[in-house]
Design a protein around this nucleic acid. Structure first.
Length: 258
DNA sequence: ATGTCACACCGTGTGTGA
């Protein structure tokens, strides 16, 4: 089972790259973030033509999340929205059961600046994820939480920790909440499980040639139930999709469980 | 160096969010 998470920074702008990716990697499940689409404009037909069924949770020009499942997989129990989230209109969480796995695609608020109202909303969203995974785990389901969590787990996930002093994405407030999500669902960070010592990133700012200068962050995750971890065959970041024609500022993260 | 991108809006540029 190949599971992918990818913040595409507009699905309309990225559709050619997404279809290219589907053809190249033949994933079973693809979780998308920042689809930036109206529901009515979501490219379900184009994705179906590429062999994928989809569930989307959309809010127009900002945010928006989706879960794609290859046509031969079972996609049931779809639900948009995160119980307890403050801004239900923002479309930052969608979940579905794919072949028995409870899969979520999450786009955590950026937070903008420490102490801002949106930073508090970011922390509250992370708390709501922890509450949700605890509930799903208690129901005995196997969980795969994916997405752009907009938090680095530790300083290895930051190209230059000193450059982020006083910024979001690196604070103890955010990192302790990410750890709390892992604990609440008894989940593991798939990339870190497979690569305990590597320093690779999933996001690079478009500006200033950050990608080519190695100036990135690891903020996109596949978190899965600890019981699934021994089945992890690989987990990698597809950096080639951060290059080429009209790339997203995020690279896809791919996890394979046997 | 707020140096890039994407989207909405009557717009050939500006505001907003990342």
């Amino acid at each position: 089972m190949k599971i992918v998470t990818w913040n595409v920074n507009s699905l309309a702008a990225r559709l050619p790259r997404v279809v290219e990716f589907l053809g190249l990697h033949d994933p079973d499940i693809v979780c998308l973030q920042e689809t930036k689409s109206e529901s009515a404009a979501f490219p379900s037909d184009e994705l179906a033509a590429a062999g994928y069924q989809s569930v989307e949770h959309s809010a127009g020009r900002w945010a928006g999340v989706a879960v794609l499942a290859r046509a031969d997989r079972s996609l049931v129990g779809t639900a948009g929205g995160l119980p307890g989230e403050l801004r239900t209109e923002e479309a930052r969480w969608v979940e579905a059961t794919v072949d028995g796995l409870r899969v979520a695609s999450a786009y955590v608020p950026n937070g903008r600046a420490l102490g801002s109202p949106t930073f508090d909303e970011k922390l509250a969203f992370l708390d709501a994820i922890a509450a949700r995974v605890e509930r799903v785990a208690a129901a005995g389901e196997q969980i795969v939480v994916t997405g752009d969590l907009n938090v680095t787990r530790d300083d290895r996930d930051v190209w230059d920790p000193a450059a982020f002093a006083g910024s979001t994405h690196v604070t103890p407030d955010e990192r302790t909440r990410l750890e709390a999500i892992l604990e609440a669902g008894d989940l593991v960070d798939a990339y870190r499980y497979v690569h305990p010592d590597d320093r690779q990133f999933t996001w690079w700012d478009y500006r200033q040639g950050h990608f080519h200068r190695g100036m990135g962050l690891r903020i996109d995750y596949v978190l899965l139930s600890r019981t699934l971890a021994p089945r992890l065959e690989r987990c990698g970041i597809e950096r080639d999709f951060r290059k080429g024609v009209k790339p997203s500022d995020h690279a896809p993260l791919v996890a394979v469980i046997g």
